[in-house]
Computed example of a mutant assay.
Amino acid sequence: MSSNNDMQAYLAPSDFFDFHHPRVRDFIDEAVGTAADPVDRAVRLYYAVRDGVRYDPYRFYMRKEYFVASRTVAEGAAYCVPKAILLAAAARGAGIPARVGFADVRNHLSTERLRQLVGGDLYRWHGYVALHLEGRWVKATPAFNLQMCERFDVKPLEFNGRDDSLMHPYNARDERHMEYVNDRGVFDDFPFEELVDDMRAFHPHLVDAAEASLRGDFEHEAMVDR
């Protein structure tokens, strides 16, 4: 079991984990309410990020300000990495040690336009969070909000604070959904430069479309494709 001193790095603020910002503090307070138990607090924060911030893969901006937790609260929509950063920041602000983790995933449930921009179905640097609860690390993925899951007929990911909650391999019709291809590990802070280098190298068309404000409507695309 880790000591309190070992956990300090996972409770600290940073430029990205700006949980002292009034927006993030309000977000934490509203989500947590009167809950005192760390597991209960973590679960409430998970659902606040999952469903309170709409998943939008076209908000793929490679600028630092778009990965800051307080910016994600203000925007109300983001792709998986800013959402993971927000959950980690909110957890730290609620006294729960947290780290961000990343994996390369093969996503079989996408839209035709998004696949063209990504260059296939392999998505690099999918974000998740590791939370230290009851003496061990538990993984959670707050990316896909409930409404988006319903549009794609995907089972929404639930989180109980005790078991890992990563992407389901199958959708509601038992068709293959997502495969974890390469786990990049967990980080004390967000490795911005490393991610940006890979995004520009492997997903340049998606980056260019976002920077040119050529957004798509992901949920509408899903309905049309189906």
Rank of each mutant, 00 (worst) to 15 (best):
N145M: 02
A84S: 14
M7C: 04
N182P: 07
I96F: 03
K83V: 03
D40Q: 13
D183S: 04
M223N: 00
S213I: 02
N145P: 00
F102M: 12
R124F: 11
G95A: 09
M7L: 15
P204M: 02
G119A: 10
L45K: 10
A90G: 05
A36I: 15
V207A: 13
A84Y: 01
T111D: 09
L146Y: 14
R136C: 11
V224Q: 13
M7I: 01
G52E: 10
S110K: 08
M148Y: 09
D26F: 02
H108F: 15
N5K: 14
F144D: 01
G52S: 06
R50I: 01
L117W: 03
F67C: 09
A209L: 00
G161K: 04
L117D: 02
A48C: 09
L131A: 10
Y58D: 11
A69Q: 06
D163I: 04
N182Q: 15
V196I: 12
F102A: 08
Y46N: 03
R41N: 07
E112K: 09
V105Y: 06
N171P: 01
A222W: 05
V68R: 15
V196K: 12
K139S: 10
N160W: 05
P97R: 06
Y170Q: 14
Y61D: 10
F152T: 01
F152M: 11
R162T: 11
M199L: 14
G185T: 04
D188R: 15
A94V: 03
S213E: 15
C149K: 08
Y170C: 10
V118T: 11
D18C: 08
E134K: 12
L131N: 11
L117H: 04
P191T: 04
C80M: 03
E211Y: 09
N171G: 08
D56N: 14
F192T: 03
A77P: 00
V154R: 13
D37C: 03
S70Y: 04
Y170A: 12
R136D: 13
A36Y: 06
R162D: 01
F190K: 08
A210K: 02
R41L: 06
A9K: 15
R44Y: 08
K83F: 02
Q116A: 13
Y55N: 05
D174Y: 14
H126L: 04
Y180E: 15
R23T: 08
I85R: 08
T34R: 14
M178L: 15
A91W: 02
R113D: 12
